[in-house]
Design a protein around this nucleic acid. Sequence first.
RNA 1: GCCGGCAUAGCUCAGUGGUAGAGCAACUGAUUCGUAAUCAGUAGGUCCGCGGUUCAAAUCCGCGUGCCGGCACCA
Length: 644
Amino acid sequence: MPAITLPDGSVRSFDGPVTGTQVAAAIGPGLAKAALAMVVDGQMQDLARTIEADAALRFVTRKDPEALELIRHDAAHVLAEAVQELFPGTQVTIGPSIENGFYYDFARNEPFTPEDFAGIEAKMREIVARNAAFERIVTSRHEAMALFAEKGEKYKVELIQDLPQGETITLYKQGDWIDLCRGPHMRGTGDVGTAFKLMKVAGAYWRGDHRNAMLSRIYGTAWRDQKELDAHLHQLEEAERRDHRKIGKEMDLFHLQEEAVGSVFWHPKGWKLYRNIEAYMRRRLDAAGYQEVKTPQLVDRKLWEASGHWENYRPHMFIATVEDETERERVLAIKPMNCPCHVQIFNHGLRSYRELPMRLAEFGACHRFEPSGALHGIMRVRAFTQDDAHIFCEEHQIAEETARFVALLAGIYRDLGFADFRVKFSDRPEKRAGTEESWDKAEEGLKEACRLAGVEYELNPGEGAFYGPKLEFVLRDAIGRDWQCGTLQVDYVLPERLGAEYVAEDGSRRRPVMLHRAILGSFERFLGILIEQHAGRFPSWMAPVQVVVTTIVSDADDYARKAAAELEKAGVAVSLDLRNEKINRKVVDHIEQRVPVLAVVGRREAEEGTLVLRRLPGREQETMPLADAVALLKAEATPPDLAR
RNA sequence: GCCGGCAUAGCUCAGUGGUAGAGCAACUGAUUCGUAAUCAGUAGGUCCGCGGUUCAAAUCCGCGUGCCGGCACCA
């Protein structure tokens, strides 16, 4: 006699076990039509499942947030059926719903190409039109394995083998097609609707392991209706317009070329942007008690052996040798990190506890041999400059230093236009240096520091640095990809390996703890994200060109020169546009170049000693005396830390 | 690194076996114009590289390089 409690608090009793379909029908025909699935005591299930006992029940309709997940998961099944109908012999593996869509991994000798999409999509629409019911079948491990073995579905057999003992094994059948699946699903393939689109093909390793076979993955997107799909596609186009590689080219900020793969050629405007950010960072670090240093690019192998890099990091290091006979025995490495060098500075002289925490900062140029497939614009490169620093401190100072660091980072991110960021906590990786005790201590210390600093994080197991656990501060680019920028790492290993010590209050020699930390991460990556975040329309203080002064007639050229000179004298990055073009054209060009402010002068302004300011890409104009305009533009071009 | 795609003028792109094209940019000239592209002319190419097939290759095939999308990697 189940009594079913609905979200409005009302209770409905039934004489015996009922299915969700029956409950929905009992409530009303509208709901019966709209319900796609149900949530029973917090667990999403198929509507056709039977409710035996008292329960809280809620129906999922197309309007509910869960509907998207259902639609996408069902779409993955429809895709798999379509593919197997069109390409016999293709094996199915897994096909989950993901952010904005779904994918399915297939095993097939011949990989799919985008040309196959039209045919597959047509077949999918056919399957949706058939509206075959999703039928849930509970089976035994033995039967399930026999079924898929007979079909030649080796990957499914492997999946079943690896399911934990005691796990209920369920199959879902839609028409004649059957798949191993945990569910839940909607009523039938018709519920998927037609607002889906196949997006891309990609290789993907079976079970995400590069030692396994490469499968052929098809990505798709799916939505409630056409309008949502169109909106999503439109958003993707918008994101493409923000791509830092595209904007970098349009604004002439930088380029990359074959002879220096993974290294950025910064052009004058890009470098100006870089320097604006660098100068800002330098001021913030100075104010936060850091001391800036500079350390060598090429360092003897001996130091890397001592630090553990030679053992743990060698494949990623560029090695340098020289022709000179006398130098033959000497092997140098271009530094992939700055930490060992900073320890050398710490070690140079006897340190006292009174000097701690000692914060050594460096805009350190590093080189790492990244796998070719990992390179991405200026966000993943082989040569980059970190805003690196190492804080040498006593153990009891970790918490406070963490709190100070997080506060500094959050303030800087806010100034640079990032109000939101995520924090991940990465603990000990498989390949690591140091003892279990030191890892225990480092992980505990960092967690405790997070508690005290009020930092909330997601766990990221096994992803720490080889010398210590880390916090990762993650920002998202225009295309929705996440990038680690800031980081904070607790390290007991390097001070030990490189023999760092200080004299404690009681006169004994002790090992400092080392905190590795970066806020931007690397300038290259961060500037890439910054470009996308602002779509190239930087706040004036960052912009490489803050104001363009231009003319309507050449009679105003002299006055334009004077105005530009005044602005320059005030420290505003100004450029002059005296081209023999119509003003309309100049406006378009400078909008395209994403100049924040256009100052226009004609005969009238020259006579009256004024400037007409137009904030691009806006249309409004504002006329004011030259001196006022200079003062205003100067104020607007002042970096936020100097304006406070 | 792996799977797939792509590579033509400075940029964006057309050109599927028969004498390399367009728009924009550049350069020259005209035009002096009041806020989203003034007009005309000129010049510009190892069609990514190497090899092969063919009477003939930007085009077909192989190898290499780079880029793009994923996967793996990301101290």
